[in-house]
Nucleic acid binder design. Structure first.
Lengths: 349, 349
DNA sequence: CACCCGGATTGAAACGTGTCAACAACCATC
DNA sequence: GATGGTTGTTGACACGTTTCAATCCGGGTG
């Protein structure tokens, strides 16, 4: 233990640099922001002074003056979920190219935390934000636009184009692909294991699954059951095993389509505990294709989303919105892809 | 597509609120920051004005004036790694109690990105930071202290107490526990599969493993081999399978101790591909106890770290450093715990 | 030689907030 | 009714940056 020296912050500012270089503060500002406007010789002098004094720019000052800060927020539904962290990588890489700083804010799937974070962005006068909305309520985002912070919605295809940009993956197509795959394998009793239906993505995936049955001439109502859990994590997946198997062997589903991989992985564990074998006794399909879907045994059949590209595209759109005065809101839609691994197999009665 | 309205930012500030409430700007500031100093009636009046004008505080202004911003940085080695995201949760929860905003910055295990992020924190005059250093080089952190931003190092027990606080888990003890466990099961040829030795944690875990052999009267040099990969992710683990198995069945290790769970999970997959069964043919031990260690089959025996508590403790220390003028740097050390699951078994010749 | 031109630099004014010494109003006490 | 103390409010200023109109300078032109 030792006392802290509480190092005396010299707080060297632009003015002190100016004095040291024998130049006016305005010139220093120009060196920093529009170097081409200042003569070679003076620029060198100023840069020397900056180095010597170990000057570090005060972003409060500049954003106060300019009314906007140079950082963008990335509002993520859940830092713990590998899907989002992969998206985050894409956003960061694209932002780095534009010299924008990314601050990652975590909503923890909670409405009130999202609201707090949105408020924070407004207080910081953030240049923009990439947001994965917690639920259908877009009022937070509208308020944010009204405060002058532009945003791009991620994975929310239903955002009208006169409201804002959006980048998303076709969730209906994903559900459809999963459904067709299972039907093609001969499964007729399928359970959809999901998080809250308040989440739009979940509803679309569900609808895709239903439509796969319809297009095969089967009544979805008779073939698809739903088990809804409060959160989309592995623990909930494991816990759901009772509900999934309810009704005894007769009623037991032949396959389970999960709203994300986390649920699917948890469910697989729960099934293993019950002595049920995947895919022999029951097939499982996930959604997202997280890294670990490929590491478990059997490998998890899942609907792959272009996570990294999703992030990049969102940030690219945001950059356009910030830089291009003639920008028009855009809607970008990716198509997911089914990745077949060992967790699904043909139904054997 | 539609043009963006570019809503006219009215930019209502503290002064306008003051005018609207028939009060001076100073009073509004007091209402915001030291409500107890202002009379009930005027406070109500001011608050009404704030609500009516939809005033939102400008944090640039306040941090410019005060010299410090109210947010703390969390510098993470890799957002993609579940270990860090769990720590992040702990940090966030503890910060929320103090009204501090947490911004998550990602170093992506790269020195230059860490440096960029540290610089960013300095420019924003962040109040403090919780940092997981990329490597042994602490110069970035020292510079940060010198700029007046205090920090707490995470998982780096070697930070001297006259330099800064640190919270870490006893990595040597973890390696020792893993080693004892394997030796107790009769394993005598163990491979340590790891990321770069530049990472201090890795070195300590390794040393713990070696010491387990020593204390059993065996020469570590004869019993422990090392396979080093450039990164600590599942892909690297899978790729490492060749190196781990090199030398043919005779030389093949009886057990592998991995520097983290990501490597271990990847390795297990690679072994499966080669037709080797865990734990029958080879035992595997991981480190961290991420959620998914419990979800794979067989479950991964691993050294559990109190991830969430680690984050909380770090943030608590940082709060003390920020609030308490008599603060002395502290070193907090957690002890890890071995969690035995199905991936390890007694050696059968 | 007066004039002008264009590029480089300057200086002052703002941005929104927090601080603090000074002041006003009120109350209790003598 | 004067004194002193308490409580609430004020107003001016400083913080570091950016912006922009004004100024300076050196050289080319008429």
């Amino acid at each position: 233990m030792s006392t802290r020296p509480r190092s005396t912050r010299p707080s060297v500012g632009i003015t002190e640099v100016a004095r040291h270089a024998g130049v006016s503060p305005g010139t220093v500002s120009n060196v920093l922001n529009r170097p081409e406007r200042v003569a070679e010789a003076t620029r060198a002098r100023v840069e020397a002074a900056i180095a010597e004094l170990d000057y570090v720019r005060n972003s409060s000052g500049s954003s106060l003056r300019s009314g906007r800060s140079g950082s963008v927020g990335l509002l993520v539904l859940d830092v713990t979920n590998p899907f989002f962290t992969e998206v985050a990588r894409g956003v960061e890489d694209e932002a780095a190219g534009a010299g924008l700083a990314v601050v990652l804010l975590n909503s923890a799937e909670a409405q009130d935390r999202q609201r707090r974070n949105v408020r924070l962005l407004a207080e910081q006068r953030a240049a923009g934000a990439v947001v994965m909305p917690v639920d259908d309520d877009l009022s937070d985002l509208l308020w944010l636009s009204h405060q002058g912070t532009s945003w791009v919605a991620l994975d929310r295809g239903d955002v009208a184009e006169d409201v804002g940009c959006s980048v998303s993956v076709d969730n209906h197509a994903g559900g459809l692909a999963a459904g067709r795959h299972l039907i093609g394998l001969g499964h007729e009793r399928v359970t959809f294991l999901t998080g809250p239906f308040a989440i739009e993505q979940v509803r679309r995936r569900h609808q895709g699954l239903l439509d796969a049955f319809t297009e095969s001439g089967m009544d979805p109502g008779a073939h698809v059951r739903v088990v809804e859990q409060p959160l989309l994590n592995p623990q909930q997946g494991e816990r759901a095993v009772d509900a999934v198997l309810a009704g005894g062997p007769r009623q037991r589903p032949q396959a389970v389509f999960c709203a994300n991989d986390q649920l699917a992985l948890g469910l697989m564990k729960g099934l293993g505990r019950r002595g049920l074998r995947v895919p022999d006794d029951i097939s499982v399909v996930g959604y997202d294709n997280v890294d670990l879907a490929d590491l478990v045994h059997p490998g998890l059949t899942t609907v792959a989303q272009p996570k990294y590209d999703l992030g990049r595209a969102a940030m690219r759109l945001l950059r356009s919105e910030l830089d291009d005065p003639g920008h028009r809101h855009e809607r970008v839609l990716f198509t997911p892809e089914l990745v077949v691994r060992g967790s699904t197999a043909a139904y054997r009665s």
